[in-house]
Simulated assay, not measured.
Amino acid sequence: MATGLEGRRRQGAAFGWTGFDAELSDSLFAALEAMLAKGAVVHGWPDQTWTLAWIKTLIGWRFHKSLTLCGVSLML
């Protein structure tokens, strides 16, 4: 099974999610993982619970990428 960006592309393609802007490079995905590991409170949310909507917003703020909630779900 492919990992990293190629694995995410294959998984997304299986669900019809193929847009270039709807994916993060391996380095951006690693940065996202590090941000998520720090917790939601560090990024301004009221509790430690991450939601897809909050992750989508974080991706938009930090990486200037626009993803759908479904795209975020498939990426993770």
Results as ranks from 00 to 15, higher is better:
39 G>V: 01
41 V>E: 07
41 V>S: 05
42 V>Q: 11
42 V>C: 09
43 H>V: 00
43 H>Q: 04
44 G>K: 04
44 G>H: 07
45 W>V: 01
45 W>K: 07
45 W>Y: 15
45 W>S: 07
46 P>C: 00
46 P>A: 02
47 D>K: 00
48 Q>T: 08
48 Q>S: 14
49 T>W: 07
49 T>I: 11
50 W>Q: 01
50 W>F: 05
50 W>G: 03
52 L>E: 12
52 L>K: 15
53 A>W: 05
53 A>I: 05
54 W>I: 00
55 I>P: 06
55 I>A: 06
55 I>H: 07
55 I>E: 06
56 K>S: 13
56 K>V: 07
56 K>Y: 07
56 K>A: 14
57 T>Q: 15
58 L>T: 08
58 L>H: 11
59 I>L: 13
59 I>W: 11
59 I>N: 12
59 I>H: 11
60 G>R: 12
60 G>Y: 06
61 W>P: 01
63 F>I: 05
64 H>R: 15
64 H>Q: 14
64 H>T: 05
64 H>A: 12
64 H>N: 14
65 K>A: 10
65 K>Y: 04
65 K>H: 15
66 S>N: 11
66 S>H: 12
66 S>K: 12
66 S>E: 14
67 L>A: 04
68 T>S: 15
68 T>H: 09
68 T>P: 10
68 T>F: 10
